[in-house]
């Protein structure tokens, strides 16, 4: 039986893409198991295809969301974008060079634990209204940006 029927491929893309539109994610962790488990790709091709699909989702989601979140609102927070982006581009540049070393078991596990802590922090509603310190916030953003850049590419 051919598991790669066009409707299944389209639906898998749409399912993960809807997370991009709704939340603002590329959806890579959700798509990878489908590429491997449902569509039968081996690990490396699946990772490459996954990167391409995540890029498509991110590129489409930003303009599609503009009717709910206007461009002006997004770019009025340019300081946040620029600081995170500075970190993430450095992270991406380093990550591309270290790509093989970074695929370590420890790094994936650290990232998994980090995600659980972040989820709990969100659920506990820890939202400081005033950033503790401008410099601290800027450095934190740049560091998180760098980690995000490392894992994104």
């Amino acid at each position: 039986m051919n598991k790669r029927n066009p409707l299944a491929i389209f639906n898998a893309g749409a399912f993960v893409g809807s997370l991009g539109g709704l939340i603002g994610l590329g959806g890579a962790e959700f798509r990878l198991p489908l590429l491997i488990g449902v569509f039968g790709f081996s690990a490396l091709p699946a990772i490459i295809l996954n990167k391409a699909m995540s890029l498509a989702v991110v590129a489409a989601a930003l303009p599609f969301r503009a009717n709910v979140v206007p461009w002006l609102a997004v770019f009025s927070h340019w300081q946040i974008i620029i600081t995170l982006l500075a970190g993430s581009l450095i992270g991406a540049w380093l990550g591309a060079g270290w790509a093989i070393k970074l695929k370590s078991r420890l790094l994936y596990r650290l990232l998994a634990v980090l995600l659980v802590f972040i989820a709990l922090a969100l659920l506990m509603g820890h939202h400081p209204n005033v950033p503790s310190h401008q410099l601290f916030t800027g450095i934190t953003l740049a560091i998180v940006g760098a980690i995000a850049g490392l894992v994104l590419v």
């Binding site: 995170l84 972040i118 995000a148 894992v151």
Partner: peptide, 14 residues
């Protein structure tokens, strides 16, 4: 790695 970038960025900003 190609994973979890947005999952880190979104909660950080929030």
């Amino acid at each position: 790695m190609g994973v979890a970038g947005g999952e880190l960025l979104i909660p950080t900003i929030v």
